[in-house]
Design a protein around this nucleic acid. Structure first.
Lengths: 127, 127
DNA sequence: CAACTGTTATATTGTTATTATAACAGTTAG
DNA sequence: CTAACTGTTATAATAACAATATAACAGTTG
């Protein structure tokens, strides 16, 4: 899977990486069990520091999305698409509430929100 | 409207403020045309610095959500709930795509996403 | 043993967040 | 007119964070 980062996006590099990997899994570009590049390999490929990649991986590991083995490497968790963390519910609620509130302040009513969600799910290929 | 900030949340103070004001508008706690506290007043009330409040207000002004008058003060824009910024469409798409991808990685399928969105819209009182 | 894994440690640089003062310019009430 | 209020601008200090750079450590594998 192709990963790209933009140093001028305002978003931190590790956050960009983390988000793109999540998107890749959601989209099916990355499948559970699949190996991910090594921290050194990916850092070299992207032209960034090893620790920046390591931090992105650590965050994904914290969410249970990837599995890190100290000597074997990194792979997508077999349960990457399965609900497992109850604490995530609150985080998800907060994020969605923020998106809804901000959307409403920009003229996105419920109908439009739902329509856009449908559209994006279709693009991603979610069930 | 009651505003609260948490210095240990990880989220920046100005971002917390901005999000809460957006939520207040979406929820109807703040109505278009309504006056907002002065930068000094709100800073004092919250126990934070004037410039932190000013930054939050500047961001909301940038989004067209509030109106700032150098000598009269700050109020919610009359068009706070009306679509006006075409550039926001891309930002909204990106944010929702991130939420969908992350949700899928945590076991939130389309059905659950839609159900949660419906529920939160009901709570907020969106049409 | 050599080459690879992720991890840990230490240090440096640059940016951002937050606070602190102070001054400026426009508006409004007394 | 003055005093008290607006937001804005400037400058500075501190702390935290992001990113980089080296280096070493401890497992695993060919």
């Amino acid at each position: 899977m192709l990963l790209r980062i933009d140093v001028n996006s305002g978003e931190t590099l590790y956050s960009q990486l983390s988000n793109q990997i999540k998107y890749g899994i959601a989209r099916g570009y990355l499948v559970p069990g699949e190996d991910l590049p090594s921290v050194r390999g990916l850092a070299s490929e992207l032209g960034i520091n090893m620790h920046t990649v390591s931090k992105a991986y650590a965050m994904l590991k914290e969410e249970g999305i990837i599995i890190i083995n100290r000597s074997k490497g990194v792979k997508v968790s077999e349960e990457a698409l399965i609900s497992r963390d109850d604490d995530y519910g609150k985080i998800f609620d907060k994020k969605m509430t923020e998106l809804i509130a901000e959307g409403l302040c920009n003229g996105y009513e419920k109908d439009q929100f739902m329509h856009k969600a449908n559209q994006l799910f279709d693009e991603i290929g979610g069930k």
